[in-house]
């Protein structure tokens, strides 16, 4: 069996006044929860509060697995995550 969790490339894209990251893409195991992406983003962008979106529209459950979200909303091995420091796409 081995480690079957697929790797997903996360592409962090800023929206509005959110700071641009030096490293916008990173790899994560599909078995991780979405909250792990948010935690990583918060550290990288040095933000206390961050608003995150998929498909430039909604925030998924923080507890959902990255693999499930990639299957639903990703393509070409990438999951695009938009982030903002104030609510966007209300």
């Amino acid at each position: 069996m081995g480690d079957k969790a697929q790797q997903v490339i996360v592409w962090l894209r800023p929206t509005g006044d959110a700071p641009i990251l030096k490293q916008q893409k990173f790899k994560i195991s599909g078995a991780e929860k979405f909250s792990k992406i948010v935690d990583t983003l918060r550290k990288k962008a040095n933000l206390d509060q961050v608003f995150v979106y998929l498909k430039e529209s909604f925030c998924p459950s923080l507890d959902e697995r990255v693999a499930v979200l990639y299957e639903a909303y990703g393509s070409n091995g990438q999951l695009v995550v938009n982030y903002a420091n104030t609510p966007a796409w209300g």
């Binding site: 909250s35 961050v50 507890d63």
Partner: peptide, 9 residues
């Protein structure tokens, strides 16, 4: 979760 993440679960 709602669109903020300052309290990860």
């Amino acid at each position: 979760s709602r669109p903020t993440a300052d309290h990860s679960e």
